[in-house]
C-alpha cells in the first residue's frame, strides 16, 4: 500500500492534491511543535545532567557537549520525534482513516473512482516523510540547547566550552544519518497508521483497536528499525 502511495507522490504537487498535502504538513508539523519543543528540550537536559554528573566524577564534565550533541543527532532526536509523532499524529491518522472506512467514506471514494490510496494515504505519507526529518532537526536543536543550559547552570560548563566540545566530535554523518532515520520513521508511522485504519473493522471498537495497534506497532518497528539502521551506519 505504501509502495502504491509512493507511486502517487508525484501527484503531491498537482493542483488538486497540493492543498491536502499542505494541510497534512500543517497538522503533522506545526501542530506538534509545542509538545515536541518540551520533549526535545527536556531530553537534552536529562542527557546533559545524567552524563554530566557521571563524567564529573572523572573531571570530564566539559565533554557533555559532545555527549548530548552526538546522542541527540544520532538517536534521541529522530527517536523522540518519532515516538511523539506516532503517538499523536499516527494514532490520529489511524482513527480518521478507520472512521472513514467504517462510515463508508472510503467506499464513496471508490465509487467516485478516486483512489483512496492516492487521496488519503499519499498526502499523509508525504507529509510525515517530509516533516519528520524537519522536526528531527528542530528536536536536535532544542535538545542541544537544553543540554547547554543545563551544562551552564548545573555543571559549570560554559556555552563556549559546550559548543566547542560538541563541534569537536559531532560530525555531519551523525546529523544526516539521524535525518535518514527520521525519514524512515515517518514512512513507518504513516504506513502503519493507514494500514491499520484501512483494516479497521466495523464500529467505534474497531477504530479504537486500529488506533491502539498503530501506536504499539509503530513504537516496536521504530525501536527495531532504529537499532538496525544504527547497525548499518555504525559498525
Amino acid at each position: 500500500m505504501s509502495l502504491e502511495a509512493l507511486l502517487f507522490i508525484p501527484t503531491a504537487f498537482s493542483k488538486r492534491s497540493r492543498q491536502e498535502v499542505l494541510n497534512q504538513c500543517y497538522v503533522t508539523g506545526i501542530k506538534s511543535l509545542a509538545v515536541i519543543s518540551v520533549v526535545a528540550a527536556f531530553t537534552g537536559m536529562i542527557l546533559a545532567l545524567q552524563t554530566g554528573l557521571e563524567l564529573r566524577r572523572f573531571g570530564l564534565q566539559q565533554n557533555i557537549g559532545t555527549a548530548v550533541t552526538v546522542v541527540m543527532l544520532r538517536e534521541m532526536g529522530p527517536f523522540m520525534t518519532a515516538l511523539i509523532i506516532a503517538a499523536s499524529v499516527g494514532s490520529a491518522i489511524a482513527a480518521q482513516v478507520g472512521t472513514m472506512v467504517v462510515s463508508e467514506e472510503v467506499s464513496a471514494l471508490e465509487i467516485m473512482s478516486i483512489n483512496p490510496v492516492r487521496f488519503i494515504v499519499m498526502p499523509r505519507l508525504f507529509a510525515l516523510a517530509l516533516m519528520m526529518p524537519l522536526l528531527a532537526v528542530y528536536t536536535n536543536i532544542l535538545g542541544i540547547l537544553g543540554g547547554a543550559v543545563v551544562g551552564a547552570t548545573q555543571l559549570q560548563v560554559s556555552f563556549q566550552a559546550y559548543f566547542d566540545n560538541a563541534r569537536l566530535y559531532a560530525e555531519n554523518k551523525d546529523l544526516y544519518v539521524g535525518l535518514v532515520k527520521a525519514f524512515v520513521f515517518g514512512v513507518v508511522i504513516a504506513t502503519t497508521a493507514c494500514h491499520q485504519g484501512f483494516s479497521a473493522s466495523e464500529g467505534a471498537v474497531g477504530v479504537g483497536q486500529a488506533t491502539r495497534r498503530t501506536v504499539i506497532i509503530s513504537f516496536l518497528v521504530i525501536l527495531v528499525l532504529g537499532y538496525m539502521l544504527t547497525r548499518v551506519f555504525y559498525r
Binding site: L47, Q50, T51, F58, L60, N63, T66, V71
Partner: peptide, 15 residues
C-alpha cells in the same frame, strides 16, 4: 574505565 569515555555506554546506562 577508558571505554566509558566512548560516551554512549553512559547515556544508555542513564536511560
Amino acid at each position: 574505565t577508558t571505554p566509558v569515555v566512548s560516551f554512549s555506554s553512559i547515556f544508555f546506562g542513564a536511560f
